[in-house]
Design a protein around this nucleic acid. Structure first.
Lengths: 204, 204
DNA sequence: AACCTTAGTCATCAATCGTTGACTGATGTA
DNA sequence: TACATCAGTCAACGATTGATGACTAAGGTT
């Protein structure tokens, strides 16, 4: 299970291919700007079949969010340093078909149709697992981490804000990690140089 | 053309009433979910007149964003403590017709049509004025402040995330201020109790 | 053979959107 | 009076959207 991007198992049914295409579409464009016809065209089936396979556009979106943002993926590569893990979820450079687990959430915040789904996602797939993993953090601060990650993703990928695109990525990553560390009340220095194995210097 | 007697800011013309209604609409719903017909109905004119008064929906949105987010408004009540000023821009409780200067940005980042406008807004009406006001902060960090504010606004107002709605507002405000202070590298304590006049204790 | 389910297509629906050309009516202005 | 401009309305357009009912074709079961 090394380079698993989306699908947990390589089911080949048309329904799964539709879901996979939907995740890509919803991760690259907003809920409103993603048409069932686009998704159908990607898979090569009729749009009516996309609709019938999932019942409605909103239900398809629901399944796409759930499949794309599962906690196992969000915290998958956690090497013990949550700030760096979370920062990478938003900042990791995306190739053509490679998407981050949070991209689909970053898009589609706006549409009311999507907001109920996202509310559930936020609670079940982010706040709860994060608090479970780091019991000292409050639900409020966990949500603020999500807010910050979402905001950074939006400004960087949707709005394409220049101050976040120009310059070194490492500098941006450092700032993002520092904010997350502030919210989680953990020391960012403990994992500053990821592979240097600082022998857990006892601080404070 | 000599007698352009129309006062530059009578604010009584139908055009201005349309613009005002547009700001309210765009601040409460996304760009896509806001129809020219809705705005026209608010003012009580024909939808065609809304369109003709501004040339296109996108141009109307542009003027709405510019009028709603002007730096004078963003930093209007600045009492010398930027973190608290900015936090209040997002957290201030909104009445029926009362909106924050950033609400219109919080909605409507999704649509590509709107994102160009928002990119310009971010640069001209937020990053640049902020850096001008606090010259020690980098453009990147200024943009990260905007990202955080946008994310908080989205989760709180659009998604209605419970962790940001439950509990005391002051606790949330404290966390938000701390994050902003971290990014701006200023001491939040300097304005913690706004009216206490701490005599500028020389720190560091 | 007859029958049922699954997979998928086709044409079309109703609704909504922003946009536009043509029009009316009032208000000046020469 | 004649003319021009501004404020605003009216009806319709073309495009796009998600949703449906009716249909075909294949596969399996009895």
């Amino acid at each position: 299970m090394p380079n698993r991007v989306i699908s947990p198992d390589a089911s080949d049914t048309t329904r799964d291919r539709i879901l996979k295409a939907a995740i890509l579409r919803f991760s690259a464009h907003s809920y409103d700007d993603t048409g069932l016809r686009d998704i159908a065209a990607d898979v090569g089936v009729d749009m009516a079949y996309v609709h019938r396979s999932f019942g409605s556009k909103e239900k398809l979106f629901y399944e796409a969010v759930k499949a794309s943002g599962r906690p196992e993926q969000l915290f998958a590569e956690d090497d013990g340093c949550l700030p760096s893990t979370l920062a990478n979820q938003i900042l990791s450079r995306k190739g053509a078909n490679e998407i981050g687990a949070l991209d689909i959430v970053v898009q589609s915040f706006a549409s009311p149709a999507a907001s109920r789904v996202l509310n559930e996602f936020l609670e079940e797939d982010f706040v709860a697992p994060l608090v479970r993993k780091l019991s000292t953090v409050s639900r409020r601060r966990a949500a603020l981490v999500a807010a910050f990650l979402a905001g950074v993703g939006i400004l960087k990928d949707a709005i394409k804000a220049e101050p976040l695109l120009e310059g070194e990525r490492s500098a941006l990553e450092e700032d993002v990690k520092q904010v997350i560390a502030t919210l989680l009340e953990v020391e960012v220095r403990d994992c500053d140089s990821p592979r240097e194995h600082v022998p857990h210097e006892t601080r404070r």
